[in-house]
Write a protein that binds this DNA or RNA. Structure first.
Lengths: 143, 143
DNA sequence: ATTACTGCAAAGCATTTGCAGACTG
DNA sequence: CAGTCTGCAAATGCTTTGCAGTAAT
């Protein structure tokens, strides 16, 4: 599989991270994800894959991955669970449907050209987060 | 849409909302706020003002205000508490300092001119949320 | 062998909810 | 007066943490 260019760890393993069955399972889930996943989602998918990973371990692995820059924790507030995604090179943003809570990925980032504008003042920009809210095709018209 | 909106509580109170001492206290805090506040912040400020409001009541009031469109719940994930702000007409976005967690407001919204682009597909945009991360003047250089 | 990681249980903490009394319109 | 709102307490649910055994380098 792997249509996507996950940064460097193609043939092996991200450097500086101990390789364990559980971490492989979590990374594998994230690589195959179609959108951001919560810790609970990830745990469920590892179970479907045959390698159950304990929930607290999933949280610890995610924390490690985030610290290493492999994974990104998004700020989408759909419900109250944090969601995570692989930190792919060309980053994405998401549109959240207020009707059905579906998360739709937006391919391009309209912010790219504006970051320079913001960087002029006394603030060095290192990243950003954008979510768009609204109604998807299925839910529009009912609201 | 585009109606002059919620900013109508000129003679003191938004329409359609029962007026209680606690709601007045919360609204007053939000009106004087210099930035987004958490429920705990709000509760603390009502205490300083002399009118303590119970925390669960603050949450219920905020929920009511959000439903009425008076208040907005942001998706800033500084720590793990939700933060709220008055839904002022010209809306704002915030830059969050990764060093000291300070929240700096950005006066203009770079997204305004891009929402139309997004609205083309099967998605009707009703709102959006943007946060920029980086280092503020005080923290830059130390990281 | 040394050090880090995981399963598990239990604690933490923000937020929500149930209920009886108090208050608003 | 009827219906809503609040104080309070207890519950809920996501996330974190402590510990002892296990696995990786």
């Amino acid at each position: 599989m792997g249509v996507n260019g996950v940064t460097e760890h193609r043939n092996g393993w991200p450097p500086g991270i101990k390789r364990t069955k559980q971490r492989e399972a979590v990374l594998s889930v994230l690589e195959r994800a179609d959108g951001p996943l919560s810790a609970v989602d990830i745990r469920a998918r590892t179970e479907s894959d045959g390698d159950g990973v304990w929930l607290s371990t999933v949280y610890r692995i995610l924390e490690t991955f985030v610290n290493k820059g492999i994974v990104q924790r998004l700020a989408i507030m759909t419900g109250d669970m944090a969601v995570y995604e692989l930190n792919r090179s060309g980053h994405r943003h998401y549109a959240v449907c207020v009707g059905c809570r579906k998360i739709i990925s937006m391919d391009n980032c309209p912010m790219e050209r504006f970051i320079p504008e913001l960087a002029d003042g006394a603030f060095r920009v290192t990243g950003h987060n954008l979510e768009v809210y609204g109604y998807c095709g299925d839910c529009d018209g009912y609201n």
